[in-house]
Nucleic acid binder design. Sequence first.
RNA 1: GUGGGUAUAGCUUAGUUGGUUAAAGCGCCAGUUUGUGGCACUGGAGACCGUCGGUUCGAAUCCGACUAUCCACCCCA
Length: 447
Amino acid sequence: MAYITGSVKGTQDTLPAESFKIQYIESAMRETAENFGYREMRTPVFEHTELFQRGVGETTDVVQKEMYTFEDKGGRSVTLRPEGTAGAVRAFLEHGLFNEALPEKIYYLTSCYRYEKPQAGRLREFHQFGIECFGAGTPAADAEVISLAHEIFNYLGIKNLSLEINSIGCPECRKEYHRALKEYFEGYKEELCQTCNSRLERNPMRILDCKSPVCSKIAEGAPVILDYLCEDCRAHFEGVKKLLDAMEIEYSVNSRIVRGLDYYTRTVFEFVSSEIGAQGTVCGGGRYDGLIEEMGGSPLPACGFALGLERLLLLMEKQQSEFPEPKKCDLYIASMGENALCRAAALAKELRSEGLCVQFDTVGRSLKAQMKYADKIGALYTVALGDDEIESGNITLKNMNSKSRHEMSLSDFADNFQSIIIKDAMSDFESLGLDDIDLQSILGGAE
RNA sequence: GUGGGUAUAGCUUAGUUGGUUAAAGCGCCAGUUUGUGGCACUGGAGACCGUCGGUUCGAAUCCGACUAUCCACCCCA
């Protein structure tokens, strides 16, 4: 490691050999979201710090200890976004999108930043795909949002993901519940772990989520939020479940699901995997009916989710999912000599304009080395170009997989490469023993 | 922020109770008679053994600190 520095802690490079996987995941998300009528929104990586303080919630861990906050040269306090919703809401309000036909359905695919200690499935720079549905307050919106996530996992062929849902009610019924919870846990104050004791004051609902065997045992007997929901919240939750049933989306109600961001109301849900370590929540979301008003807009219901790309990729690799092979080199032109190189460059230019991937030597290697390179990059076809070919006007096209070679004139080749490879793919030259096939007839037949 | 594991070429690792020029496989580059890849063979480049300090005649090896990384807690996607 004599290099001046490595990457920053908690960051990751996506190398060329791997990038096609994440591209595939992203395209699955874009395509699915667009089928649901969502459109992309892009917002800046950094925002005024107070946006997140207000939006995410002053008391949350994310805001209190995980934000990348700094002062810019103009003395503004800015923060790298720790999540996507706050910025989306800001842009929604700032550009008056509430005046457009509602619901406004947007998605984003962006990097997020949290100063945390890295571990499996957790990075300081990570990427989220998220959707927000602004202006829809019925259970149908919650169910649609959930089914969109469900559809993405389906598209990607992901197995063993469990959907867990809960309702944490509106601020009204939650108040009642908090009181009951506190009362219950006060009775076990001596036995609860240290962190849970501190949670007792700050956010008693978090105790339900504690992994310590003692606490979780105690939590088993705790009051359940669902018993405290007001009439409206209860009806809403029932509505969501009914719709999920109708769409045949499997779920389990888990009254311990509590989300760590302050803005959630009513429906909350997570898609959880047990295959990628402790950070098993691949996707989390819910309803946040109070957020838009909190940020200064008129009251407007909304819901959405965020999905962690790195966690999803981790899971897919664990499950040995198939990723479509990235496009390989269609043709490699091996050249010898200056004249041939010029000819190769011109030919490559011409064929590339037809949408083909064409490469030639740019490091001055021997013919043999060029062939070796063509093999390594997985070129489908190669053609050698030297003084002989230029003089005679004839070249030999080689299929790298079948090893079959076909002679033809350079001009026919340049004009018809696409049809030649289509023809070649359709009829198996090898098995037909047609190594000396008359290419002119193929060219004619391919027109 | 708190624990625990790990740190040797681009990658995966070996390195005997401390003992000279730190080893292998893969990968990379080049050759094996001059213009055709995969196989085989030959050769080559590439490591201040994470960093700094200590013990010692002598440290990749023992000790300490730091850093990085992995895993877990907290919390979240």
